[in-house]
Each structure stands twice: as C-alpha cells, then as structure tokens.
Simulated scan of single mutants.
Amino acid sequence: KKLPEKTKKIIFVKFAAVGDIVLLIPTLNLFKKKFPDAEIDFLCTNINSGIIKTIPFLDNVIVCKVYDFIKNPFYFLNFVKMLRKKQYDLLIDAEQWARIDAIISFFIKKKFSIGFKTKKQFRHYNYSVSVDHSRYNHESENFLNLLKPLGIVAQESDKIPEFYLTDDDIEFAEKYWEEKGLKNQKIICFQPGCGTGSFAREWKEENYAALGRKILEYDPGIRFFVMGTENDFEKCQKIVYGIGKNSENLAGKFSMGKDLAIIRKTELLVCSNTGILHMAAAIGIKTIGLHGPNNPKQWGAYSEKAEVILSDIFCSPCLYLGHEYGCITPVCMPRIKVEDVYLKVREILDKG
C-alpha cells in the first residue's frame, strides 16, 4: 500500500500501560506538530485511559473493555461495528508485543497502517509497513521510529516526555501544602507498588522502611509521602509504620493527576520501574529508579535528573517482552541494598 496523499484522520492504538504512554507522548507530540490539522483518535483500555485523557490535543479517546470480550462475545461484535463506522487515513499501532491490539486493528477501516515487528511475535503481517522493535533502543526512541515511514525523523529535542498536569491539580497541591504546613519542608516520596502481576519488580516494604529510618538519622526534619493506588494501601501502611515518624500514607487518596502535582513539589521520588517513575521524570522531578528485571537502557526514566540503581546479579536485566521473568522466585530486587539507595539519596540531597 502507498501512503495516503492527505492524512486527515488518524488513530493510534495502545492497550497498555501507563509508563508506555508517557514514553509515547513525544511521538504523539511530533506527529501533531507535523500534521497540526489532523483529527487524532486514540484506542486504549481502562488500564491507560486515565493518562491518555490528559493529553490535550487528542480528539477522541475510545476505551476498549477487553475482558468483556470473554464475558460477552456480542460486546466484541458491537465494538468492532462501532469502530468500522469511521474511515481512517492512517492507523499506528504502538503495541510492542500483545496481539490483541493487532487483532482489533485488523478490523478498523484504514488506508495505511504502521506497527512494530517484534521478534517471534508474528504480529507485523497486519500492517502496511512494519518497524523493527529493538531491545537496544530506549522505548521512547522505539516509539518515535514508528513515524519514520511517514518521513518524520525525531531530533534530540523531540524525545523528551511530558505529563499534562491540569490547573486544578496544581491548585490542589498548593492548597494541600498550605493546609498541612509543608512550606520549606523537605519531602521524599516512596512508591513501592508496580501494579498487578509485577511483584518481581518491587523492592520490599521493609527496605523502604529501613531507608526512611536511615534518612531520618541524616536529617530528622525530612518527611515522607508513601504513594500508590488503593491496592497498595496496606504495603504503604507497613512502610509508614516501619519508618515510625514523619511519614504519611497517601495511597489511593487522590487521583493520578493530584498525586503527580504533590510529587512535583517534593525533593525526589524513589521507586521501581513503573509508570509513576516515568510520569515523575516527565514533570521534572529527581528520581531514583530501582531496576532488577527491567533494563534501564530501554525502560529507564528519560530525564537528566533520573538516577539508576541496578541489581548486581549476573542475570539482571532479564525482561524484554515484559513477562518472561528468568526465575519463579525473584532474586534480583532483594540484591539492591538499602545502603546503596541511601547513599544515592544523600548525594541528591547534598547537591540540592
């Protein structure tokens, strides 16, 4: 197929996950810059719809309830029927591995399509043009390569991720600081959770608690916000109890945007490789990313303010497709020592 002469209607497809969307935003920005008058739709799931809906220049966000396909086959048929009412000039499938995106993309009416060719996934036959996915590129750069068939080559300045905080979220954080009397307070954020099925990437609660106590020995005035979703509340509470003082459990209390607005006003964030790491980096916060199964060269926070601590075990990192962990019982994250993270925190705080 040939590229359409005019690109007026486009649909991006990506069913997961939050961190991926942060790293995809530079691609969306660059596309919009090159095609300012194009109508851009985004097909996603409830996993990542929250962050996608914050992107201001998208015209339509279409949420696919994938699990409902299993419960009710008629939902699938009706969903496909709804998608086929539109004729797109271009479809870009930004999913790297999962095949469900490719299956849904097959049914969408489009003149031209672009997607990844990932080794042993056999999903690239669905597209007019496929782009090689490389485990040796940063994922943000892999996403930008999807635009090369359109003659769009990213410059270094195009690669920086963004996160779109609303005025309401920023105002909320300002009021929160005022009500809590946090002016001139040094605050460090911890986020222990990595989402469903990603426990192998998590650093244990007792490690965060020990890190907090050690930081308090260095500076008794420092405070801690322990962040996460509602599902993380109990593990966050263990950390708060373990630190003993100057710490607050904010897990599940606020929206994602409000959490980010709060993090934006703190000194730094310590967490594993998860969506919040990329969002915090995108709003310019100093981060310490703890990496075991994930390769920071591919999945690290894309920021000059990002610090990396990588497990020292020989088999780390092991992930490429995101699920092929090299062991049943995770051994890489426990190898990350509290002392090493503490020294990195000290280094950041001392630099100011």
Rank of each mutant, 00 (worst) to 15 (best):
A306V: 08
C318Q: 12
Y176L: 09
K1W: 02
Y176C: 08
M256C: 03
C44I: 03
G284I: 01
L250P: 08
K183E: 02
K351V: 13
A16F: 08
D37Q: 04
F163Y: 11
S128M: 01
A281N: 09
R201K: 07
Y218H: 00
N249Q: 07
G242Y: 04
I263D: 10
F163M: 07
A16V: 14
K9G: 14
I288K: 00
F31A: 10
K186S: 06
K183I: 05
K14F: 02
T266P: 06
N78S: 12
I25G: 05
T166V: 15
N142A: 05
N60Q: 08
E174T: 03
N273Y: 02
K109H: 10
I309C: 02
F12W: 13
D132Q: 12
K71E: 14
G228Q: 09
L250G: 14
I114T: 13
K204H: 15
A280E: 12
L144F: 12
G212D: 03
V80K: 13
K148P: 01
N246K: 03
K305R: 09
K85I: 15
I104G: 01
Y88E: 15
D259L: 06
S105Q: 05
M279G: 06
R201Q: 03
E202A: 00
F79A: 04
L268F: 11
G193V: 08
A102Y: 13
F314N: 12
L83T: 01
G151P: 03
D168G: 08
S303P: 05
K238D: 09
Y88T: 13
I348T: 04
R135F: 01
N295L: 06
F15G: 15
I262S: 07
K235C: 00
G151C: 06
C332T: 14
G195K: 13
A281W: 11
A209I: 14
E156Y: 08
V18F: 05
C315W: 15
L30E: 02
G193A: 15
S303F: 04
L310W: 12
K305I: 09
D59I: 09
H124T: 03
C64S: 10
I51R: 07
F225P: 03
H291D: 10
T266N: 10
F190H: 12
I243C: 05
N48H: 12
Q87K: 15
E304V: 08
W203H: 09
S134F: 09
V61A: 08
K183Q: 04
C189P: 10
V308L: 04
T118N: 05
V22C: 09
T45N: 02
L150I: 07
P73F: 09
K2C: 13
G292P: 09
Q237M: 11
F233H: 07
P293K: 01
N142V: 07
G151N: 06
I108E: 11
E307L: 01
S272V: 01
E156C: 10
V240L: 04
N72Y: 15
L144Q: 11
F57I: 04
